[in-house]
């Protein structure tokens, strides 16, 4: 820094510590609330110190849920979320890397046309075509299935663009060498391109896993069978399902469990996450 201002630095630390406290606060409150017995939320303001019922609340949430209000146990919903997130992530990555390979390494009629079709997906998020997309999925008989939860979401323009950009930076000589050695396109793809792309794949994997896990509107539309509820949408059922006040201790235990996998992914793969985030949006 230009001048070293001790008070300025002190002031910056104060702001940041306050900032971090505010950012962390909602999750702290959720964790605290999930350790209290149900009675706590009937009287007065909620406590700020941990209670004694953590074990009970979490085991109830994971194994029973709120069965009377039609919400299945959290364990099953987390499993569904995991399957959906993995299917979306792997699906997006594989179809995007294949299309980018075709667009960069081949010259063929209608190449630009296909590129534009893929580009259009950027402009058509689910939110702007809710009803007709639902009708298509219903016509295919894909309601209440993992195929319906994942396949309509796996087209990805951003991943295709990212792979395309990366392939353009791969030296030409690699391909020439491969051709001289008699390698066909798929062998070149498998043995040279794929290993080179591994960091990009990993970075996108982190971003897309979070995207997939956090899907809300789509599972809400196409699952009516509680066996296919995902955890993020299941929380809404727990909050509104039933006439009384939500059972806050269970809701908050569920919130903590629902947020845990993507938060862990970010914390343990922060470098890849930052890379994926800053590169996909450029």
């Amino acid at each position: 820094m230009v001048e070293n201002n001790r008070w300025g630095n002190f002031f910056a630390h104060v702001i940041l510590i306050l900032g971090v406290a505010i950012v962390v606060f909602p999750v702290y409150v959720a964790i605290i609330a999930s350790t209290h017995p149900p009675g706590t939320f009937v009287r007065g303001v909620m406590p700020l110190w941990p209670g004694t019922h953590a074990w009970e609340n979490y085991t109830t949430a994971i194994t029973e849920g709120r069965s009377r209000a039609g919400t299945p146990p959290i364990g099953g919903m987390m499993w569904n979320s995991f399957i959906m997130a993995m299917a979306i992530t792997i699906g997006k990555l594989s179809i995007s890397i294949l299309s980018a390979f075709a667009i960069v390494y081949f010259r063929f009629p209608f190449r630009i046309f296909f590129f534009w079709i893929i580009f259009l997906t950027l402009m058509l998020p689910v939110e702007v075509r809710i009803v007709p997309t639902f009708q298509v999925v219903a016509d295919f008989g894909m309601l209440n299935s993992f195929a319906g939860l994942s396949i309509p979401l796996i087209a990805s323009a951003t991943a295709t663009f990212l792979f395309r950009q990366f392939f353009m930076t791969v030296p030409e000589e690699l391909m020439e060498a491969a051709r001289v050695d008699g390698a066909g396109p798929m062998k070149f793809f498998k043995d040279i391109l794929l290993p080179l792309s591994i960091t990009n794949i990993a970075a996108l994997f982190v971003i897309m896993f979070i995207y997939g896990w956090n899907q809300y509107l789509w599972p809400l539309l196409i699952t009516t069978d509680p066996d296919y509820y995902t955890i993020v949408m299941g929380i809404q059922r727990m909050v509104t399902g039933g006439d009384s006040e939500p059972l806050w201790h269970l809701v908050m235990a569920t919130v903590v469990l629902a947020a845990l996998p993507p938060v862990l992914v970010i914390l343990f793969m922060q470098r890849l996450f930052v890379k994926g985030l800053t590169e996909t949006e450029k």
């Binding site: 594989s94 179809i95 995007s96 294949l98 299309s99 390979f101 075709a102 667009i103 960069v104 390494y105 081949f106 010259r107 063929f108 190449r111 630009i112 296909f114 590129f115 079709i117 893929i118 259009l120 997906t121 058509l124 075509r129 997309t133 298509v136 999925v137 396949i151 309509p152 796996i154 087209a155 990805s156 295709t160 353009m168 030409e172 391909m175 020439e176 051709r179 066909g184 396109p185 798929m186 070149f188």
Partner: peptide, 29 residues
């Protein structure tokens, strides 16, 4: 939009590679 200077030649392969993405885009988008 560019490709590589030197490209693979195949009549059908690029379409097969694009097919999953394009079909999903057409049907669901």
């Amino acid at each position: 939009m560019q490709t590589k200077r030197m490209t693979f030649s195949s009549k059908w392969l690029p379409y097969a590679l694009l097919a999953p993405q394009v079909i999903i885009t057409l049907i669901f988008f």
